[in-house]
């Protein structure tokens, strides 16, 4: 039954509480921002106390953490990794490069706004963001999940044609498998 507080069902509130406290992260670290992930995960800043834990494959992960710029070549791999993840899934864009291209604004082969290609739930800005900022971004995502507002995956399914058109515009040799999830 819907709860009048924030119009979530009670079962969703319980599920979202569990999802919020257990975020398995797939860090896609080809940009320079990846250097901030090890201190976030290890002893100094210890993201594991919030239930944030690195995972090795897209199948097991909940959060795709895109660190830094994406060349059109790596964008293809990111899309593939994102589509292999299981629902519910979230994306965090990390660093200025995912927001407006950052220092790669003039580059001929990097994308500028990540949200045009895969749905981003939370952005962490900065060039590059320190581990404190990364953890703040994760806590922001946890708040969105608890309120049931982190619905990037649903948006992606509903507007798949728009996202596909954008993706195919920059990826010239499109030979990806079709997923019917």
């Amino acid at each position: 039954m819907p709860n009048d507080k924030n119009s979530q069902k009670i079962v969703d509130i319980i599920k979202n509480a569990a999802r919020k406290h257990s975020l398995f992260v797939l860090a896609y670290g080809t940009g320079c921002g990846a250097i901030e992930i090890p201190p976030t995960m290890t002893s100094r800043y210890d993201a594991e106390r919030f239930g944030i834990r690195g995972m090795a494959t897209p199948r097991q992960a909940d959060v795709l953490l895109v660190t830094g710029y994406l060349a059109t070549k790596t964008l293809k791999r990111v899309i593939r990794a994102y589509e292999q993840m299981q629902d519910p899934k979230y994306v965090i864009g990390f660093g200025s490069c995912t927001i407006n291209g950052g220092m790669y604004w003039d580059s001929y082969n990097t994308i500028k706004l990540l949200d045009k290609y895969i749905p981003v739930d939370v952005y962490i800005n900065g060039c590059m963001p320190r581990p404190e900022a990364v953890i703040t971004g994760f806590i922001e995502l946890q708040k969105l999940i608890a309120e049931g507002k982190a619905d990037g995956a649903t948006k992606y399914k509903e507007n798949l044609d728009w996202y596909r058109a954008n993706q195919k515009k920059v990826i010239k040799n499109w030979n990806m498998p079709d997923y019917n999830w």
Binding site: R19, S22, D46, E48, Q86, P88
Partner: peptide, 28 residues
């Protein structure tokens, strides 16, 4: 975590993990 000088997750963390994983969709 304590041996690595970290705070570490709460001791009931694995219950959260298992419950969350059971509530995920599995389309593979």
């Amino acid at each position: 975590a304590r041996i690595q000088n970290r705070v570490g997750p709460p001791v009931y963390q694995n219950f959260f993990d298992i419950f969350k994983l059971y509530s995920k969709s599995t389309a593979v």
